[in-house]
C-alpha cells in the first residue's frame, strides 16, 4: 500500500481519537438536554461530510459531462458512495437523538423529509450505476447527480425557509445562535477528523474504481485479441 495513504490513515486515526475524546469528555454537558446532546458531535460533522461529498459528486459529474473523463467518472462514483455512507449515519443518529429530546423518533418536517429524499436520490444513483449496463450509464448517472444536487441546497436551507421540528442553525443562524467555546472546539475537532476520514474513504474508493476501469480495458483488449 502506498506510503502517503498509510501516513494519511494514521493522521486521520489520531484526529478521530482526539475528536472522540473532545466530544465525550472535554466538551461541557448541555444544560437542557444533558449528555444526549453529545450526539451532535457526530451527527453534524457527518452531515457536513455528506454535503461535501454530494457537492464534489456534482462537480465531478459536470466535468464528466463536459470532458467524458474516466477519472472524473470514478471520482463521481467514489464521492456518491461515501456521501451515502455518511448520510446513512445522519439518518440514524438523528432519530437516536430525537427520541429522548422530542419524544418521537421521526417527523415529516422539511429538514428530515428532504434529507431522506437526498439519501434515496443518491442510493438510486448507486443502484443505477450498479445494475444498468451499456455505455450510457455514466452519462445517465451524471445527469441524475446534477438534478439530485438541487436537494442538497434544499436540505441545507430547509431550516431557514420553513418552521421545522429540527432545530434552527446553531452556526451562522443569526442573532441568538452560537456555541460555548469548548463545544465549538469539540465540534471543530470532529468536523476536521470526519472530513479527513471522508477524504480517506473517497481516496480508497477512487483508487479501486480506477483499477476496475483499467481491468475493464484489459478485458476488452483481451477479448479483441481473441476475436482477431
Amino acid at each position: 500500500m502506498n506510503k502517503k495513504l498509510v501516513f494519511f490513515a494514521l493522521v486521520t486515526l489520531g484526529l478521530l481519537l482526539y475528536a472522540l475524546n473532545q466530544a465525550l469528555y472535554v466538551a461541557p454537558t448541555e444544560e437542557t438536554m444533558g449528555d444526549i446532546q453529545r450526539i451532535f458531535y457526530y451527527h453534524v460533522p457527518s452531515a457536513f461530510v455528506a454535503f461535501a461529498c454530494f457537492f464534489a459528486n456534482l462537480v465531478a459529474s459536470l466535468v464528466y459531462l463536459k470532458q467524458r473523463s474516466s477519472a472524473a467518472d470514478a471520482f463521481a462514483l467514489a464521492t456518491a458512495e461515501v456521501g451515502v455512507v455518511f448520510c446513512t449515519i445522519v439518518l440514524i443518529t438523528g432519530p437516536l437523538w430525537a427520541k429522548p429530546v422530542w419524544g418521537i423518533w421521526w417527523t415529516w418536517d422539511a429538514r428530515l423529509t428532504s434529507t431522506l429524499l437526498l439519501w434515496l436520490i443518491y442510493v438510486s444513483y448507486l443502484i443505477l450505476r450498479r445494475f444498468s449496463s451499456g455505455g450510457q450509464t455514466p452519462v445517465l448517472a451524471a445527469v441524475l447527480s446534477v438534478f439530485g444536487s438541487v436537494d442538497v441546497v434544499f436540505v441545507y436551507m430547509s431550516i431557514r425557509w420553513f418552521r421545522t421540528q429540527h432545530p434552527q442553525p446553531v452556526l451562522g443562524g443569526g442573532e441568538g445562535s452560537g456555541l460555548h467555546p469548548a463545544m465549538a472546539h469539540a465540534l471543530l475537532a470532529n468536523v476536521v477528523a470526519f472530513f479527513a476520514f471522508g477524504a480517506l474513504l473517497v481516496w480508497l474508493r477512487y483508487k479501486l474504481e480506477r483499477s476496475r476501469q483499467q481491468l475493464d480495458e484489459l478485458h476488452a483488449l483481451a477479448a479483441e485479441r481473441g476475436t482477431n
Binding site: L20, L24, G34, D35, I36, R38, I39, Y42, H43, S46, V85, T88, I89, I92, T93, L96, W97, K99, P100, F197, L201, L204, R205, L208, S211
Partner: peptide, 27 residues
C-alpha cells in the same frame, strides 16, 4: 452515559467498519 448516545457512536463506527470491509472485499 445515555443508551442512545452510545448507540449513535457505536452505529457510526459499525457502518464505517462495514464499508471498509466492503472496500477490502472489492480490492
Amino acid at each position: 452515559m445515555p443508551r442512545n448516545l452510545l448507540l449513535a457512536y457505536a452505529v457510526t463506527w459499525i457502518i464505517h467498519g462495514l464499508y471498509i470491509v466492503v472496500l477490502t472485499h472489492k480490492a
